[in-house]
Design a protein around this nucleic acid. Sequence first.
RNA 1: GGAGGGGUGCCAGAGCGGCCGAAUGGGGCGGUCUCGAAAACCGUUGUGGCUCUACGAGUCACCGUGGGUUCGAAUCCCACCCCCUCCGCCA
Length: 422
Amino acid sequence: MLDISLIRAKRDWVEGEIAKLNTKAPIAQIVALDSCRRELLTEAEELKHRRNVVSKEIGRMKEAEDRQAKITEMRAVSDRIQALDKQLRQVNEELREAMLWVPNLPHYSVPVGPDEDHNIILRDEGEPREEDFKLLPHWDLGPKLGIIDFERGVKLSGTRFYLLRGLGSRLQRALIQWMLDVAVDQHGYTEMHLPLMVRAEMMVGAAQLPKFADNIYHDAEEDFWWLGTAEIALTNVHRDEILPPDSLPITYVAYTPCFRREKMSAGRDVRGIKRGHQFDKVEMYRFTRPETSYHALEEMVEQAAYLCQALEIPYRVVEMCTGDLGFQASKKYDLEMWAPGCQEWLEVSSLSNCEDFQSRRANIRFRREKGGKPEFVHTLNGSALALPRVMIAIIETYQQADGSITVPDVLQSYVGASSISA
RNA sequence: GGAGGGGUGCCAGAGCGGCCGAAUGGGGCGGUCUCGAAAACCGUUGUGGCUCUACGAGUCACCGUGGGUUCGAAUCCCACCCCCUCCGCCA
Protein backbone atom coordinates (compact mmCIF):
# COMPACT_ATOMS: atom_id res chain seq x y z
CA MET A 1 0.00 0.00 0.00
CA LEU A 2 1.20 3.48 -0.79
CA ASP A 3 1.20 6.38 1.63
CA ILE A 4 -2.04 8.28 1.00
CA SER A 5 -0.31 11.57 1.79
CA LEU A 6 2.13 10.90 -1.06
CA ILE A 7 -0.79 10.57 -3.47
CA ARG A 8 -2.32 13.70 -1.99
CA ALA A 9 0.86 15.75 -2.33
CA LYS A 10 2.32 14.45 -5.59
CA ARG A 11 -0.58 13.01 -7.53
CA ASP A 12 0.79 13.72 -11.02
CA TRP A 13 4.14 12.19 -10.23
CA VAL A 14 2.49 9.06 -8.77
CA GLU A 15 0.36 8.66 -11.87
CA GLY A 16 3.44 9.00 -14.04
CA GLU A 17 5.24 6.27 -12.10
CA ILE A 18 2.25 3.95 -12.38
CA ALA A 19 2.16 4.56 -16.13
CA LYS A 20 5.74 3.25 -16.32
CA LEU A 21 4.50 -0.03 -14.85
CA ASN A 22 2.23 -0.43 -17.82
CA THR A 23 -0.77 -0.80 -15.54
CA LYS A 24 -3.60 1.22 -14.09
CA ALA A 25 -4.71 2.30 -10.66
CA PRO A 26 -7.79 4.13 -9.38
CA ILE A 27 -5.92 7.28 -8.39
CA ALA A 28 -8.68 9.71 -9.36
CA GLN A 29 -11.16 7.77 -7.27
CA ILE A 30 -8.74 7.73 -4.34
CA VAL A 31 -8.19 11.47 -4.45
CA ALA A 32 -11.94 12.09 -4.50
CA LEU A 33 -12.65 9.66 -1.67
CA ASP A 34 -9.82 11.09 0.39
CA SER A 35 -11.10 14.63 0.25
CA CYS A 36 -14.64 13.45 0.90
CA ARG A 37 -13.37 11.52 3.89
CA ARG A 38 -11.63 14.53 5.37
CA GLU A 39 -14.70 16.72 5.00
CA LEU A 40 -16.90 14.21 6.76
CA LEU A 41 -14.28 13.65 9.41
CA THR A 42 -13.93 17.32 10.22
CA GLU A 43 -17.66 17.81 10.64
CA ALA A 44 -18.12 14.64 12.66
CA GLU A 45 -15.26 15.48 14.99
CA GLU A 46 -16.45 18.99 15.67
CA LEU A 47 -19.83 17.59 16.64
CA LYS A 48 -18.26 14.92 18.79
CA HIS A 49 -16.24 17.54 20.59
CA ARG A 50 -19.41 19.45 21.35
CA ARG A 51 -21.17 16.31 22.47
CA ASN A 52 -18.31 15.37 24.80
CA VAL A 53 -18.36 18.80 26.41
CA VAL A 54 -22.12 19.02 26.81
CA SER A 55 -22.49 15.44 28.00
CA LYS A 56 -20.13 16.20 30.84
CA GLU A 57 -22.19 19.25 31.72
CA ILE A 58 -25.34 17.14 31.75
CA GLY A 59 -23.71 14.80 34.21
CA ARG A 60 -23.16 17.70 36.61
CA MET A 61 -26.56 19.38 36.16
CA LYS A 62 -29.08 19.40 38.99
CA GLU A 63 -32.11 21.13 37.47
CA ALA A 64 -34.28 18.61 35.65
CA GLU A 65 -35.55 21.17 33.16
CA ASP A 66 -32.12 22.38 32.05
CA ARG A 67 -31.00 18.83 31.87
CA GLN A 68 -33.85 17.75 29.67
CA ALA A 69 -33.31 20.66 27.31
CA LYS A 70 -29.68 19.73 26.82
CA ILE A 71 -30.49 16.08 26.37
CA THR A 72 -32.98 16.92 23.67
CA GLU A 73 -30.42 19.10 21.95
CA MET A 74 -27.77 16.42 22.13
CA ARG A 75 -30.10 13.80 20.81
CA ALA A 76 -30.22 15.73 17.55
CA VAL A 77 -26.44 16.14 17.56
CA SER A 78 -26.00 12.43 18.11
CA ASP A 79 -28.32 11.57 15.28
CA ARG A 80 -26.27 13.76 12.99
CA ILE A 81 -23.04 12.16 14.22
CA GLN A 82 -24.45 8.73 13.62
CA ALA A 83 -25.35 9.63 10.06
CA LEU A 84 -21.91 11.11 9.43
CA ASP A 85 -20.16 8.11 10.94
CA LYS A 86 -22.13 5.80 8.73
CA GLN A 87 -21.10 7.72 5.62
CA LEU A 88 -17.57 7.87 6.90
CA ARG A 89 -17.41 4.12 7.37
CA GLN A 90 -18.53 3.60 3.83
CA VAL A 91 -16.08 6.12 2.40
CA ASN A 92 -13.25 4.63 4.46
CA GLU A 93 -14.03 1.17 3.22
CA GLU A 94 -14.14 2.28 -0.40
CA LEU A 95 -10.91 4.20 0.04
CA ARG A 96 -9.15 1.26 1.61
CA GLU A 97 -10.36 -1.09 -1.08
CA ALA A 98 -9.18 1.30 -3.80
CA MET A 99 -5.78 1.68 -2.12
CA LEU A 100 -5.36 -2.09 -2.13
CA TRP A 101 -5.47 -2.06 -5.93
CA VAL A 102 -2.63 0.43 -6.31
CA PRO A 103 0.69 -1.20 -7.19
CA ASN A 104 4.01 -0.40 -5.58
CA LEU A 105 6.09 2.27 -7.32
CA PRO A 106 9.40 1.45 -9.02
CA HIS A 107 12.75 2.41 -7.54
CA TYR A 108 14.41 5.20 -9.56
CA SER A 109 17.13 2.80 -10.68
CA VAL A 110 14.73 0.42 -12.43
CA PRO A 111 15.03 0.57 -16.24
CA VAL A 112 11.88 1.84 -17.88
CA GLY A 113 10.28 -0.50 -20.40
CA PRO A 114 6.83 -1.77 -21.34
CA ASP A 115 7.37 -5.53 -21.00
CA GLU A 116 9.72 -8.43 -20.38
CA ASP A 117 11.54 -7.89 -23.67
CA HIS A 118 13.05 -4.81 -22.06
CA ASN A 119 14.51 -6.60 -19.06
CA ILE A 120 18.27 -6.33 -18.81
CA ILE A 121 20.57 -9.32 -18.67
CA LEU A 122 23.15 -8.17 -16.16
CA ARG A 123 25.46 -11.14 -16.40
CA ASP A 124 25.85 -14.61 -17.75
CA GLU A 125 27.89 -17.24 -15.90
CA GLY A 126 29.03 -20.65 -17.09
CA GLU A 127 29.20 -22.24 -20.51
CA PRO A 128 26.03 -23.89 -21.82
CA ARG A 129 26.75 -27.56 -22.36
CA GLU A 130 27.09 -28.95 -25.87
CA GLU A 131 27.60 -32.66 -26.55
CA ASP A 132 27.98 -34.98 -29.47
CA PHE A 133 24.96 -36.96 -28.26
CA LYS A 134 21.49 -35.48 -28.04
CA LEU A 135 20.65 -34.04 -24.67
CA LEU A 136 17.18 -35.20 -23.71
CA PRO A 137 14.58 -32.97 -22.10
CA HIS A 138 13.71 -33.99 -18.52
CA TRP A 139 10.23 -35.14 -19.52
CA ASP A 140 11.89 -37.92 -21.52
CA LEU A 141 14.87 -38.63 -19.30
CA GLY A 142 12.98 -38.54 -15.97
CA PRO A 143 10.49 -41.30 -16.82
CA LYS A 144 13.25 -43.37 -18.47
CA LEU A 145 15.20 -43.33 -15.22
CA GLY A 146 12.08 -43.95 -13.17
CA ILE A 147 12.56 -40.76 -11.14
CA ILE A 148 9.62 -38.76 -12.53
CA ASP A 149 6.18 -40.31 -13.07
CA PHE A 150 3.78 -38.09 -14.97
CA GLU A 151 1.00 -40.59 -15.67
CA ARG A 152 0.45 -41.57 -12.08
CA GLY A 153 0.63 -37.95 -10.93
CA VAL A 154 -2.16 -37.12 -13.34
CA LYS A 155 -4.06 -40.20 -12.21
CA LEU A 156 -3.97 -38.95 -8.63
CA SER A 157 -4.64 -35.27 -9.11
CA GLY A 158 -5.04 -34.34 -12.75
CA THR A 159 -3.07 -32.16 -15.08
CA ARG A 160 0.01 -30.32 -13.76
CA PHE A 161 0.73 -32.98 -11.13
CA TYR A 162 3.54 -35.53 -11.11
CA LEU A 163 5.36 -37.86 -8.75
CA LEU A 164 9.03 -37.94 -7.92
CA ARG A 165 10.23 -41.46 -7.24
CA GLY A 166 13.26 -43.10 -5.68
CA LEU A 167 16.45 -41.10 -6.20
CA GLY A 168 14.44 -38.43 -7.96
CA SER A 169 12.60 -37.73 -4.74
CA ARG A 170 15.83 -38.05 -2.83
CA LEU A 171 17.63 -35.62 -5.13
CA GLN A 172 14.98 -33.00 -4.45
CA ARG A 173 15.15 -33.63 -0.71
CA ALA A 174 18.93 -33.31 -0.91
CA LEU A 175 18.59 -29.96 -2.66
CA ILE A 176 16.18 -28.67 -0.03
CA GLN A 177 18.42 -29.78 2.79
CA TRP A 178 21.54 -28.36 1.18
CA MET A 179 19.98 -25.00 0.34
CA LEU A 180 18.59 -24.59 3.86
CA ASP A 181 21.99 -25.50 5.30
CA VAL A 182 23.73 -22.90 3.14
CA ALA A 183 21.27 -20.20 4.16
CA VAL A 184 21.51 -21.02 7.85
CA ASP A 185 25.18 -21.97 8.21
CA GLN A 186 26.81 -19.65 5.69
CA HIS A 187 24.46 -16.70 5.57
CA GLY A 188 23.01 -16.68 9.08
CA TYR A 189 19.32 -16.95 8.28
CA THR A 190 16.93 -18.30 10.91
CA GLU A 191 15.07 -21.34 9.63
CA MET A 192 11.28 -21.29 9.90
CA HIS A 193 8.64 -23.96 9.56
CA LEU A 194 5.35 -22.37 8.58
CA PRO A 195 1.62 -22.95 8.31
CA LEU A 196 0.78 -23.69 4.67
CA MET A 197 -2.64 -22.12 4.93
CA VAL A 198 -3.38 -18.74 6.43
CA ARG A 199 -6.23 -16.32 7.04
CA ALA A 200 -7.41 -13.95 4.36
CA GLU A 201 -5.88 -10.92 6.11
CA MET A 202 -2.42 -12.40 5.66
CA MET A 203 -3.05 -12.57 1.94
CA VAL A 204 -3.99 -8.89 1.99
CA GLY A 205 -0.90 -8.05 4.01
CA ALA A 206 1.40 -9.77 1.54
CA ALA A 207 -0.45 -8.06 -1.33
CA GLN A 208 -1.88 -11.27 -2.81
CA LEU A 209 -5.45 -10.19 -2.15
CA PRO A 210 -7.58 -8.69 -3.47
CA LYS A 211 -5.83 -8.58 -6.83
CA PHE A 212 -4.70 -12.18 -7.25
CA ALA A 213 -7.62 -14.05 -5.71
CA ASP A 214 -8.06 -16.08 -8.89
CA ASN A 215 -4.68 -17.72 -8.52
CA ILE A 216 -4.98 -18.84 -4.91
CA TYR A 217 -6.43 -22.07 -3.54
CA HIS A 218 -9.03 -21.32 -0.92
CA ASP A 219 -10.93 -23.44 1.55
CA ALA A 220 -14.31 -21.74 1.72
CA GLU A 221 -15.56 -23.65 4.76
CA GLU A 222 -12.85 -22.47 7.14
CA ASP A 223 -11.72 -19.48 5.07
CA PHE A 224 -8.15 -20.74 4.84
CA TRP A 225 -5.94 -19.60 1.99
CA TRP A 226 -3.09 -21.79 0.76
CA LEU A 227 0.36 -20.35 0.31
CA GLY A 228 1.47 -19.68 -3.24
CA THR A 229 4.86 -18.86 -1.69
CA ALA A 230 6.38 -18.86 1.80
CA GLU A 231 6.73 -15.10 1.38
CA ILE A 232 3.07 -14.72 2.34
CA ALA A 233 3.47 -16.34 5.75
CA LEU A 234 6.89 -14.81 6.38
CA THR A 235 5.66 -11.28 5.67
CA ASN A 236 3.03 -11.67 8.35
CA VAL A 237 5.22 -13.18 11.05
CA HIS A 238 5.74 -9.69 12.49
CA ARG A 239 2.36 -8.26 11.49
CA ASP A 240 1.06 -5.56 13.86
CA GLU A 241 4.34 -5.42 15.72
CA ILE A 242 6.66 -2.55 16.55
CA LEU A 243 10.12 -4.07 16.48
CA PRO A 244 12.49 -2.73 19.14
CA PRO A 245 15.73 -0.90 18.29
CA ASP A 246 18.59 -3.20 17.29
CA SER A 247 16.26 -6.02 16.22
CA LEU A 248 16.82 -5.35 12.51
CA PRO A 249 17.73 -6.87 10.19
CA ILE A 250 15.66 -10.01 10.72
CA THR A 251 16.44 -12.75 8.23
CA TYR A 252 14.39 -15.91 7.75
CA VAL A 253 14.62 -18.89 5.46
CA ALA A 254 11.82 -21.39 4.98
CA TYR A 255 11.17 -24.46 2.92
CA THR A 256 7.52 -24.89 1.92
CA PRO A 257 5.41 -26.44 -0.75
CA CYS A 258 3.66 -23.75 -2.82
CA PHE A 259 0.21 -24.00 -4.36
CA ARG A 260 -0.96 -22.08 -7.39
CA ARG A 261 -3.99 -22.35 -9.61
CA GLU A 262 -2.06 -21.10 -12.64
CA LYS A 263 -5.23 -19.72 -14.16
CA MET A 264 -3.25 -17.03 -15.94
CA SER A 265 -0.99 -19.53 -17.69
CA ALA A 266 -3.63 -22.04 -18.73
CA GLY A 267 -2.24 -24.11 -21.59
CA ARG A 268 1.32 -22.78 -21.17
CA ASP A 269 4.23 -24.85 -19.91
CA VAL A 270 2.07 -27.92 -19.52
CA ARG A 271 4.86 -30.27 -20.45
CA GLY A 272 7.29 -31.51 -17.81
CA ILE A 273 7.63 -30.28 -14.26
CA LYS A 274 8.28 -26.62 -14.95
CA ARG A 275 4.91 -25.31 -13.85
CA GLY A 276 2.76 -27.43 -11.52
CA HIS A 277 -0.11 -26.62 -9.21
CA GLN A 278 2.15 -27.67 -6.34
CA PHE A 279 5.88 -27.17 -6.13
CA ASP A 280 8.56 -26.89 -3.48
CA LYS A 281 10.66 -23.84 -2.78
CA VAL A 282 13.21 -22.54 -0.32
CA GLU A 283 12.58 -18.87 0.36
CA MET A 284 14.79 -16.19 1.89
CA TYR A 285 13.15 -13.24 3.61
CA ARG A 286 14.41 -10.07 5.27
CA PHE A 287 13.03 -7.23 7.34
CA THR A 288 15.40 -4.27 7.18
CA ARG A 289 15.71 -0.58 7.91
CA PRO A 290 14.78 1.53 4.88
CA GLU A 291 18.31 2.77 4.31
CA THR A 292 19.82 -0.72 4.06
CA SER A 293 17.24 -2.53 1.95
CA TYR A 294 18.93 -2.07 -1.42
CA HIS A 295 22.23 -3.32 -0.10
CA ALA A 296 20.31 -6.30 1.32
CA LEU A 297 18.75 -6.99 -2.07
CA GLU A 298 22.17 -7.18 -3.74
CA GLU A 299 23.35 -9.55 -1.02
CA MET A 300 20.38 -11.81 -1.55
CA VAL A 301 21.03 -11.92 -5.28
CA GLU A 302 24.59 -13.04 -4.57
CA GLN A 303 23.36 -15.66 -2.12
CA ALA A 304 20.97 -17.13 -4.68
CA ALA A 305 23.65 -16.93 -7.38
CA TYR A 306 26.06 -18.81 -5.13
CA LEU A 307 23.71 -21.81 -5.24
CA CYS A 308 23.76 -21.80 -9.03
CA GLN A 309 27.55 -21.57 -9.06
CA ALA A 310 27.96 -24.36 -6.51
CA LEU A 311 25.73 -26.59 -8.62
CA GLU A 312 27.91 -25.68 -11.61
CA ILE A 313 24.98 -24.87 -13.83
CA PRO A 314 25.07 -21.93 -16.27
CA TYR A 315 22.83 -19.11 -15.10
CA ARG A 316 22.15 -15.47 -15.72
CA VAL A 317 20.98 -12.52 -13.65
CA VAL A 318 18.15 -10.48 -15.15
CA GLU A 319 17.01 -7.08 -13.96
CA MET A 320 13.28 -6.51 -14.41
CA CYS A 321 12.18 -3.38 -16.21
CA THR A 322 9.23 -1.33 -14.95
CA GLY A 323 6.73 -3.16 -17.14
CA ASP A 324 7.70 -6.55 -15.66
CA LEU A 325 8.03 -5.59 -11.99
CA GLY A 326 4.79 -7.07 -10.84
CA PHE A 327 2.50 -5.63 -8.18
CA GLN A 328 4.56 -5.51 -4.99
CA ALA A 329 8.17 -4.95 -5.96
CA SER A 330 10.07 -1.68 -6.15
CA LYS A 331 12.94 -3.52 -7.75
CA LYS A 332 13.30 -7.11 -8.83
CA TYR A 333 15.92 -9.50 -10.18
CA ASP A 334 15.38 -12.95 -11.63
CA LEU A 335 17.94 -15.74 -11.75
CA GLU A 336 17.61 -18.12 -14.66
CA MET A 337 19.32 -21.48 -15.18
CA TRP A 338 19.97 -22.93 -18.57
CA ALA A 339 18.24 -26.22 -19.31
CA PRO A 340 20.08 -27.77 -22.28
CA GLY A 341 17.49 -30.53 -22.90
CA CYS A 342 14.43 -28.32 -23.33
CA GLN A 343 16.67 -25.49 -24.56
CA GLU A 344 15.21 -22.90 -22.25
CA TRP A 345 16.23 -20.38 -19.61
CA LEU A 346 14.30 -21.31 -16.47
CA GLU A 347 13.44 -18.83 -13.74
CA VAL A 348 14.77 -20.46 -10.57
CA SER A 349 14.68 -17.39 -8.37
CA SER A 350 12.93 -14.08 -8.15
CA LEU A 351 14.29 -11.53 -5.69
CA SER A 352 12.39 -8.39 -4.75
CA ASN A 353 12.65 -5.37 -2.55
CA CYS A 354 9.10 -4.40 -1.63
CA GLU A 355 10.26 -1.40 0.44
CA ASP A 356 7.37 -0.43 2.73
CA PHE A 357 4.61 -1.65 0.42
CA GLN A 358 3.90 -4.83 2.37
CA SER A 359 4.83 -3.42 5.77
CA ARG A 360 2.15 -0.76 5.40
CA ARG A 361 -0.43 -3.39 4.56
CA ALA A 362 0.64 -5.71 7.34
CA ASN A 363 1.51 -2.87 9.76
CA ILE A 364 5.08 -3.89 10.51
CA ARG A 365 7.12 -1.14 12.14
CA PHE A 366 10.32 -0.58 14.09
CA ARG A 367 11.86 2.02 16.37
CA ARG A 368 15.29 3.47 15.67
CA GLU A 369 15.86 4.18 19.33
CA LYS A 370 14.00 3.91 22.60
CA GLY A 371 11.10 6.31 22.59
CA GLY A 372 11.52 7.01 18.87
CA LYS A 373 8.58 7.19 16.50
CA PRO A 374 7.60 3.91 14.83
CA GLU A 375 8.60 3.66 11.15
CA PHE A 376 7.69 1.09 8.57
CA VAL A 377 10.31 -1.58 7.86
CA HIS A 378 11.34 -2.65 4.38
CA THR A 379 10.66 -6.23 3.35
CA LEU A 380 12.57 -8.34 0.84
CA ASN A 381 12.00 -11.80 -0.48
CA GLY A 382 13.85 -14.14 -2.82
CA SER A 383 13.78 -17.78 -3.78
CA ALA A 384 16.80 -19.89 -2.96
CA LEU A 385 15.70 -21.70 -5.01
CA ALA A 386 12.52 -23.03 -6.67
CA LEU A 387 12.96 -26.80 -6.74
CA PRO A 388 11.34 -28.14 -9.92
CA ARG A 389 13.32 -25.90 -12.21
CA VAL A 390 16.58 -26.67 -10.48
CA MET A 391 15.69 -30.35 -10.83
CA ILE A 392 15.15 -29.81 -14.54
CA ALA A 393 18.49 -28.03 -14.92
CA ILE A 394 20.36 -30.71 -12.99
CA ILE A 395 18.74 -33.63 -14.77
CA GLU A 396 19.36 -32.14 -18.18
CA THR A 397 22.81 -30.68 -17.52
CA TYR A 398 24.26 -33.70 -15.76
CA GLN A 399 23.00 -36.41 -18.10
CA GLN A 400 25.58 -38.78 -19.54
CA ALA A 401 25.85 -40.54 -22.86
CA ASP A 402 24.71 -43.83 -21.23
CA GLY A 403 21.48 -42.22 -20.05
CA SER A 404 22.49 -41.86 -16.39
CA ILE A 405 22.74 -38.64 -14.40
CA THR A 406 25.80 -37.63 -12.42
CA VAL A 407 24.93 -36.08 -9.06
CA PRO A 408 26.50 -32.61 -8.60
CA ASP A 409 29.47 -32.72 -6.21
CA VAL A 410 27.88 -30.55 -3.54
CA LEU A 411 24.86 -32.86 -3.35
CA GLN A 412 26.55 -36.26 -3.35
CA SER A 413 26.79 -36.58 0.41
CA TYR A 414 23.15 -35.52 0.75
CA VAL A 415 21.93 -37.92 -1.93
CA GLY A 416 24.19 -40.74 -0.82
CA ALA A 417 25.03 -41.57 -4.42
CA SER A 418 27.22 -40.15 -7.15
CA SER A 419 24.99 -41.05 -10.06
CA ILE A 420 21.43 -42.00 -10.91
CA SER A 421 20.75 -44.67 -13.49
CA ALA A 422 17.83 -46.80 -14.60
C1' G B 1 -17.36 -32.21 19.22
C1' G B 2 -19.47 -31.11 24.61
C1' A B 3 -19.19 -27.96 29.27
C1' G B 4 -17.22 -23.79 31.63
C1' G B 5 -13.91 -19.39 32.27
C1' G B 6 -11.56 -15.21 30.11
C1' G B 7 -9.61 -11.17 26.63
C1' U B 8 -7.88 -3.71 29.86
C1' G B 9 -1.61 0.22 28.78
C1' C B 10 5.59 -2.91 28.24
C1' C B 11 3.93 -6.89 32.13
C1' A B 12 0.64 -8.13 36.25
C1' G B 13 -3.96 -6.47 37.68
C1' A B 14 -8.47 -3.05 39.42
C1' G B 15 -12.44 -0.66 37.27
C1' C B 16 -21.09 1.92 40.68
C1' G B 17 -23.08 4.03 32.67
C1' G B 18 -20.66 10.51 33.61
C1' C B 19 -15.20 12.73 38.08
C1' C B 20 -11.58 6.71 33.25
C1' G B 21 -6.91 7.28 28.37
C1' A B 22 -8.03 4.49 32.54
C1' A B 23 -6.41 2.93 40.07
C1' U B 24 -2.44 0.00 42.12
C1' G B 25 2.07 -2.91 41.72
C1' G B 26 6.21 -4.24 38.63
C1' G B 27 9.40 -3.01 34.55
C1' G B 28 11.72 0.86 31.45
C1' C B 29 13.61 5.90 31.12
C1' G B 30 15.32 10.62 33.64
C1' G B 31 16.80 12.68 38.30
C1' U B 32 18.19 13.17 43.82
C1' C B 33 21.48 10.57 47.17
C1' U B 34 26.53 7.72 46.49
C1' C B 35 33.56 7.24 45.06
C1' G B 36 30.35 3.83 42.34
C1' A B 37 26.33 0.43 42.80
C1' A B 38 22.11 -1.30 45.56
C1' A B 39 18.17 0.59 48.48
C1' A B 40 15.07 4.77 49.17
C1' C B 41 12.69 9.03 47.22
C1' C B 42 10.88 12.39 43.07
C1' G B 43 9.41 12.72 38.02
C1' U B 44 8.20 10.33 33.49
C1' U B 45 6.41 6.29 30.43
C1' G B 46 1.10 4.39 24.25
C1' U B 47 -0.78 4.31 18.96
C1' G B 48 -3.27 6.35 14.92
C1' G B 49 -6.27 10.08 12.22
C1' C B 50 -7.74 15.13 11.16
C1' U B 51 -7.18 20.63 11.48
C1' C B 52 -4.21 24.92 12.07
C1' U B 53 -1.41 31.27 12.43
C1' A B 54 2.77 24.14 12.44
C1' C B 55 10.40 22.03 15.22
C1' G B 56 4.27 23.76 18.40
C1' A B 57 -1.10 23.83 19.43
C1' G B 58 -6.07 21.91 19.15
C1' U B 59 -9.29 17.92 18.45
C1' C B 60 -11.21 12.93 17.52
C1' A B 61 -10.63 7.74 18.03
C1' C B 62 -8.54 3.41 20.33
C1' C B 63 -9.74 -1.08 27.17
C1' G B 64 -9.91 -8.50 21.49
C1' U B 65 -12.89 -7.08 16.56
C1' G B 66 -17.42 -5.17 14.41
C1' G B 67 -22.27 -3.39 15.25
C1' G B 68 -26.21 -1.59 18.67
C1' U B 69 -28.66 0.97 23.12
C1' U B 70 -27.84 5.94 25.54
C1' C B 71 -27.38 13.05 26.08
C1' G B 72 -22.97 10.06 27.58
C1' A B 73 -20.12 3.13 27.14
C1' A B 74 -13.89 -0.09 29.26
C1' U B 75 -18.59 -0.54 31.93
C1' C B 76 -25.31 -2.63 29.13
C1' C B 77 -26.99 -5.72 24.49
C1' C B 78 -25.81 -8.66 19.87
C1' A B 79 -22.42 -11.07 16.53
C1' C B 80 -17.61 -12.65 15.44
C1' C B 81 -12.31 -13.73 16.57
C1' C B 82 -8.79 -15.53 19.95
C1' C B 83 -6.95 -17.76 24.56
C1' C B 84 -7.39 -21.03 28.89
C1' U B 85 -9.49 -25.34 31.89
C1' C B 86 -12.11 -30.02 32.01
C1' C B 87 -14.43 -34.17 29.19
C1' G B 88 -14.59 -36.83 24.48
C1' C B 89 -12.01 -38.06 19.93
C1' C B 90 -7.51 -38.39 17.17
C1' A B 91 -1.77 -38.65 13.92
